[in-house]
């Protein structure tokens, strides 16, 4: 049972002021590096909670869909320009970021994923592809500066980051659409 320890270490490392300051100083590393890593730390730590509270997970997340919804809501919340800005100015929001992403997004995702059938898995990826395209469009072509803390050029960079991630997901979807793995097994 090492993985929860690694997860916790990752979370603690991300909380260290020099690291969090560095990652938050650039808009795209804030959203596309720090936040996903927080989720990853939660993925690692999930085993601990699953072992500790098995009934809780089987009762509330029986088919995986509630966990998926919680994950999606938390992720959407943190994709908004305003929440990123607030995380930098309000300590309470910053604390919420470090709690919500690992424990309310990472942990439920890990618990839900194996329970989901391929319809929900693909639905999730499709949903995030569309969301990322929309966000990319918003950040690139927004006529105004969306965050007080970040310049317009950083905003455009983040937008292209969203578009390229969406592109990777599209490639994956096409691949899994055309590849019928059962044929190879």
């Amino acid at each position: 049972m090492k993985s929860p320890v690694y997860g916790l270490l990752l979370l603690l490392a991300l909380m260290l002021p020099p690291i969090s300051n560095l990652l938050e100083s650039i808009m795209i590393t804030h959203m596309h590096m720090q936040m996903p890593l927080l989720v990853v730390s939660g993925l690692f730590m999930a085993k601990f909670f699953q072992n500790r509270f098995p009934e809780f997970f089987s009762k509330w997340n029986e088919n995986g869909v509630p966990g998926l919804l919680l994950f999606s809501i938390i992720m959407m919340y943190w994709s908004l320009p305003r929440t990123m800005d607030e995380a930098l100015t309000l300590t309470s929001v910053e604390v919420f970021k470090f709690i919500s992403l690992p424990f309310l997004a990472g942990v439920p995702l890990r618990d839900s994923w194996p329970k989901l059938n391929s319809f929900w898995k693909h639905a999730l990826i499709i949903f995030f592809t569309i969301l990322f395209l929309a966000l990319g469009w918003l950040y690139i072509w927004s006529p105004v500066q969306l965050c007080n803390n970040y310049l317009v050029i950083e905003q455009i960079t983040l937008g292209w980051g969203f578009i390229s991630t969406a592109f990777a997901m599209v490639v994956y979807l096409i691949y899994s659409y055309f590849m019928d793995f059962s044929k190879y097994e």
Binding site: I153, T157, W160, S164, Y175, S176
Partner: peptide
């Protein structure tokens, strides 16, 4: 397919910032 997707993500990480600039 998964390796290709990982590759694309990594290429995005490396190139988006400088190319936009």
């Amino acid at each position: 397919g998964l390796w290709v997707v990982c590759m694309i993500v990594l290429v995005g990480m490396a190139y988006v910032i400088p190319l936009v600039d």
